[in-house]
Design a protein around this nucleic acid. Structure first.
Lengths: 378, 378
DNA sequence: GTCCTCGCGTATAACGTTCTACGAGATCGT
DNA sequence: ACGATCTCGTAGAACGTTATACGCGAGGAC
């Protein structure tokens, strides 16, 4: 019932289908030649000499088909290069299509999650269509609504800022899996890495190098749902700082996790009398924005200041950037999310939350502080 | 008929719709509560006290609607949070959806084109869905077929390698615009920059700096359609070299325009006795792969070797990378492509080709060669 | 007052699937 | 030999739109 043996699904390219078995009135003798018409199930059935219902059964791998009939129908399907009409399918049930919402397609982290998502659905004969939103909650909601309008069978949402209530609302309409956002939910699944651990890894690393004055960049948002990734990372940062007895050094800068947010934060920091000796930027994109300002102003990284990102994106791996970061295993996040969505589409309703462990990748933007921070303590 | 005044389209979120005006048999008294059902046109019509045909007319902005009726129907639509079912629409005509095929979503150039595409369609009340393919022609074809299966109204294709015959085949089924690929086509439109000029800009720049031994990275493909971007850039490179009297210095390395292709090319070059003094890498992704190897091996850029990319992607702008590149105006390419597609959807059939001029962005990966190349000539 | 046109509204047949009924044979236990 | 039970196949009604083909009343022209 679920997914068919691949031999059952041999439709490929389309061809012109001429009504050969019956004398059907031609549309118009010399009207402009109509675009290639795709074969329908009726065409297939006619050619195989069976009813459309029978052809449909073969298509779906449903019960009640003799091997002989199956054979004939499949032959007709390949001969006519039959491909099911998704709109028609959508009218009665499934579209075999899932949507992936990407809040910011420029953020390579999402691309990497995607590369984990796609193969799973390809293997299950689902089409994957990606919806890109502008970075605003309204735009994201509009995109999800559009996907629901398309009667998609399920949704993978990568949106760090969407309010939980909205997510629950979507989840009441169709299967939903949310990526990169922890915490138990009632109507949908989540796949994420433990942001608390991630922040701790960074702070421990920096403290281990001798830093004490460590700032953190977070997202400036009114929503204080603790499952939001930026909230979780901020809490993890604070907890780690406290654990090291640095609670009076907690230093959170509110900005946004984008390139611009990073440059803005850099300018904010540069206005201060003394810089922190290290920065936990919260996200690679922000770290890169921050770094580009620091580099332009001639501040030495990591000599004057250490910078750590989050997400371990490909840019950070480039030799001249060489950004210390936290790897979330984006590909695996995507794979797990896709699997959970398939399960949900298959009928599971109880919520599931996967929480993976992030790992630290140390590179050359972090090092021991050149001069110990001129702090009263120490 | 085309796009409605925005006041006509006020559907927003969906709500539960209870069959209030008629006594309809409940599905099952104590069955598991059904998921929120979206309001249909029939629901809207019932509530407004008109026929579905009338409601449809209002929805489409069709002729034959009195102001009073329009008012009542629109009221019902907002009250029920009506949203048209795309599948149903697809059964009879338009889906108000266009597809964008991206061959490699990791390539930021495409992301930037996308950011030019999206606003145009948003303004025309079209949904944009993105299809991502693996970097193989088969995978791209499969994706396009899937989009046709979804009865999309038109396609923007960003695929540097798809054979022209396939493109024509797609174009015979639905409106198609191809981005980043020049040359006149018969069934579809193209939007591109002049790759010949782009290559010339790079070669002129390098020669102007004093380089004579300039290698070029191209794509290793059997298809020699001159409209393929890598072919056009290679020809432009060769022409420019000839123009400078450097025809015996023409040095083309066949690889692929990906990060891995860049690293492979680097290794190939490093096996030689003498390196060229400059490389026209053909694409930023390839240039970055190349650079990462050069940096790792300790080769000084631009001291030992100059490197120029192509596409002017955001990574290249980062201070420590600072990659000289050719800007194609990705955003404008996207905008123009979207406009052309709307025209085609609107009925235009004669092909149109837009060819824009690229510009050179010089940064720090190119400079005068430290030592003049030890060539017999010169 | 007819005959026409025009403006406004409704009835209804598609579109291509899915899937529930149901029917016709074949097989089987007794 | 005769219901009962399988197996294989078909009829036909949805699903939610669109768009064509009408119907009906109100003016206008004569």
């Amino acid at each position: 019932m679920r997914s068919l043996p691949s031999a059952d699904r041999q439709w490929r390219q389309y061809v012109h289908v001429s009504e050969q078995t019956e004398a059907v009135p031609e549309p118009m003798p010399d009207a402009p030649v109509p675009l290639a018409r795709r074969a329908t199930l009726r065409d297939v059935a006619r050619r195989a000499g069976v009813s459309t219902a029978a052809a449909s059964k073969v298509l779906r791998g449903a019960y009640g088909v003799s091997p002989a009939m199956r054979e004939r129908v499949q032959e007709a399907m390949t001969a006519l290069a039959y491909r099911p009409n998704v709109s028609a399918r959508g009218m009665r049930g499934k579209t075999f299509t899932v949507g992936v919402l990407v809040s910011d397609i420029q953020n390579q982290f999402y691309d990497q999650v995607l590369s984990g998502v796609a193969p799973v659905f390809a293997g299950a004969d689902y089409a994957v269509l990606i919806g890109q939103a502008e970075p605003s909650v309204e735009s994201e909601i509009a995109m999800v609504e559009a996907m629901i309008d398309h009667r998609m069978d399920g949704l993978v949402l990568m949106t760090p800022t969407m309010p939980k209530a909205e997510l629950e609302r979507f989840a009441s309409v169709l299967p939903v899996v949310v990526v990169a956002r922890g915490g138990a939910a009632v109507g949908f699944d989540t796949v994420a890495t433990d942001d608390g651990i991630g922040s701790a890894l960074i702070v421990d690393h920096l403290v281990g190098l001798g830093h004490r004055s460590i700032a953190h960049l977070t997202v400036d948002s009114p929503d204080d749902d603790p499952t939001l990734p930026f909230r979780a990372r901020a809490r993890g940062y604070e907890a780690a700082m406290r654990r090291h007895g640095l609670e009076d050094r907690i230093d959170v800068v509110r900005t946004s996790w984008t390139n611009d947010g990073g440059t803005a934060a850099a300018r904010l920091l540069l206005e201060r009398e003394t810089l922190p000796t290290a920065i936990h930027a919260g996200a690679d994109v922000a770290a890169l924005g921050l770094l580009s300002v620091l580099w332009d102003v001639g501040i030495d990284v990591p000599g004057d200041i250490s910078v750590a990102g989050y997400d371990n994106s490909p840019i950070g791996m480039l030799a001249p950037v060489s950004l210390t970061s936290v790897d979330q295993g984006a590909g695996e996040l995507g794979t797990r999310a896709a699997q959970l969505l398939l399960e949900r589409i298959g009928g599971r309703t109880e919520p599931r939350s996967v929480l993976l462990k992030p790992t630290l990748v140390t590179r050359r933007t972090t090092a021991a502080p050149r001069i110990r921070s001129a702090s009263p303590v120490d």
